[in-house]
Computed example of a mutant assay.
Amino acid sequence: MKKNVLLTGGTGFVGKYLTQLLIEQGFSVSILSRSKRTNTEDVFYYTWDVQKQTIEKEAVLQADYVIHLAGANIGEKKWTKARKEEILSSRELSAQLIYSVLKKYDKKLDAFISASAIGIYGAINGEEICTEEMKPANDFLGLTCQKWEASADRIGELGIRTVKVRTGLVLGKNDGFLNKLTPIFKLKLGSALGSGKQYMPWIYVNDLCGIYLAAIKNPQMQGAYNAAIDDNTTNASFSKTLAKVYGYKIWLPHVPAFLIKMVLGEMALLVLTGRRVSSDKIKQLGFHFRHENLEETVRVCLDK
Rank of each mutant, 00 (worst) to 15 (best):
M1D: 04
V5L: 11
V5T: 07
T8E: 06
T11R: 08
T11Q: 04
L18E: 02
T19Q: 14
Q20H: 09
L21M: 14
G26W: 09
G26I: 13
F27D: 00
S30C: 07
S30H: 05
S33H: 06
K36D: 01
V43S: 10
V43Q: 11
W48H: 06
D49A: 10
V50D: 06
Q53F: 13
K57R: 14
L61F: 04
Q62K: 15
D64Q: 10
Y65P: 05
V66M: 12
I67M: 14
A70H: 04
G71C: 12
G75H: 07
E76L: 13
K78Q: 12
K81N: 07
E86K: 13
S94M: 11
A95G: 15
Q96H: 13
Q96E: 15
L97F: 05
K104I: 04
D110E: 15
S114D: 02
I118W: 12
I120L: 14
G126T: 01
E127K: 15
C130E: 01
C130T: 00
K135I: 08
D139M: 14
F140R: 08
L143Q: 04
L143R: 09
Q146K: 09
Q146V: 10
S151M: 08
D153H: 08
D153F: 12
R154G: 04
I155Q: 07
I155F: 08
G156N: 05
L158W: 01
R161F: 08
R161L: 08
K164G: 00
V165Q: 03
G168A: 08
V170P: 01
K173D: 01
G176K: 10
K180W: 09
K180I: 12
L181S: 02
T182C: 04
K186M: 07
K186E: 03
K188L: 09
S195D: 03
G196I: 03
K197Q: 03
Q198W: 03
M200T: 03
W202I: 02
D207R: 03
I211W: 08
Y212P: 00
Y212M: 04
A215W: 06
M221R: 05
Q222S: 11
G223F: 07
G223V: 04
Y225E: 03
N226I: 15
A227W: 09
D230Q: 14
F238T: 01
K240S: 10
K240V: 03
L242S: 04
L242D: 02
K244N: 11
W251C: 11
L252W: 15
P256G: 04
P256E: 11
A257H: 06
K261H: 07
M262G: 02
V263R: 13
G265A: 10
E266D: 09
E266K: 14
E266M: 14
L270M: 13
T273I: 11
R276N: 11
V277A: 11
K281M: 09
K283C: 13
K283H: 09
Q284C: 14
L285S: 06
F289L: 11
R290M: 15
N293P: 00
E296G: 01
V298W: 01
D303S: 12
D303P: 00
K304S: 09
